[in-house]
Design a protein around this nucleic acid. Sequence first.
DNA 1: TGGCAAGCGGACGAGATCGTCCATTTGACC
DNA 2: GGTCAAATGGACGATCTCGTCCGCTTGCCA
Lengths: 226, 226
Amino acid sequence: MGKSSRIAGQDSLRADARRNRRRILSAARVVFAEHGIDAPMATVARRAGVGVATLYRRFPTRDALVRAAFAHQMDTCARTLTEALADPDPWQGFQRLVETVCELQREERGFPAAFVAAFPDSTREHARVLEQAEQDFMTLVRRAQAAGVLRADFHPSDIAVALLSHCGLVTALPGDRAASRRLVAYLLQSFRAEAAHGALPAPSALSLRSLPLAAHGSQGQRSSGT
Amino acid sequence: MGKSSRIAGQDSLRADARRNRRRILSAARVVFAEHGIDAPMATVARRAGVGVATLYRRFPTRDALVRAAFAHQMDTCARTLTEALADPDPWQGFQRLVETVCELQREERGFPAAFVAAFPDSTREHARVLEQAEQDFMTLVRRAQAAGVLRADFHPSDIAVALLSHCGLVTALPGDRAASRRLVAYLLQSFRAEAAHGALPAPSALSLRSLPLAAHGSQGQRSSGT
DNA sequence: TGGCAAGCGGACGAGATCGTCCATTTGACC
DNA sequence: GGTCAAATGGACGATCTCGTCCGCTTGCCA
């Protein structure tokens, strides 16, 4: 043994192993961007210049690889939410949040698929992060509504509607930045208080946390509550 | 030989063949709805109670099957456009069109995937239909803008943006009618003339017809023109 | 420098899907 | 009813992907 005591952390790896780990993640991002997150594991391994065994040893499932590959982007999302809360201008905070996340989806090929695929998992720790994020987001929404800049009938679940539809758009049209920006602009305008003209249909029952259920429970088709 | 002269049309089939054809299409809709349009061909065949050979003889490629299975829905889209043009109220025509197509995407499981997948093909005849549709749609847009109900900076390509993003949403959340309706409501509100507050980013270069190119040319990432 | 456990990579068997081939059945016309 | 081409269905070979197993290599500590 040696430096670390017992349980192998992620950096108690031998030098070469750590290097390979980084190579794999880098290769995964490239391959996922080119061929989608369903690309063969062997392709990722070849691109990284390692054997499949190495890949599987580091990331036992495709899901683990995907999550690790886009962890940085996920972190950026979370950080942006914190920054949005810190912004003195409630609307600007809200707008920045939506624009930043959508820009991430637009620019990081493969991330949109990962973004959608990431929800259904609900890792213990991941769930806690999401819960916190939901809390923060609701605070952001309430603040913006109190300031009269976000329409009063905006429902927190609408952010999921916006992000998932944008996700679908950039997946269908990878590379078309104009289309993505256009959608974001339309949505943001319709979220502003002064855009509220008619009544909206009932909001979706989904929340950031319940997304996994909604995204998977495909048979029973519950519509909305309330 | 017999009744028909030479080239076998689609209804010069023998009675049993025609019956099987119908069975296959019906089974395909069910299977595609349950498992997506990537479901194994054998599954469709089994469900239809025919052998795979029969399936392949009728529909040589999965694409041909998908297109045939959802031809009816595509026709409905086209018909709705015609009806929209005939509507004396320009806004109601426009609104009905968007709502109807989105409702189709929402209710017909598997159709969204087919909708996106259908574009990249450009069958000779299909291309002509699309061209006509685009003409009609532009007329609809101009009429609504002239009447001052549709915002002046609405660009025809925005309909593709709207439909594709909605497509993505219902694909991610099959069965969540509320989310779908919510998105449609938001988008329609932001398309109305009185919703135009700030300037929009440049529209996408894609049109209904150019969608195939945009959806496939994934590497070179042209953004917008003007 | 030597020893050894961590790390490595490629071969390999299992499982799934594709699309074709061909012997047999069946509908339509005489 | 008889004839024959159209139609059928399932077996089959090819291809692909997965994830594991195992013999060899290499970094690290003494």
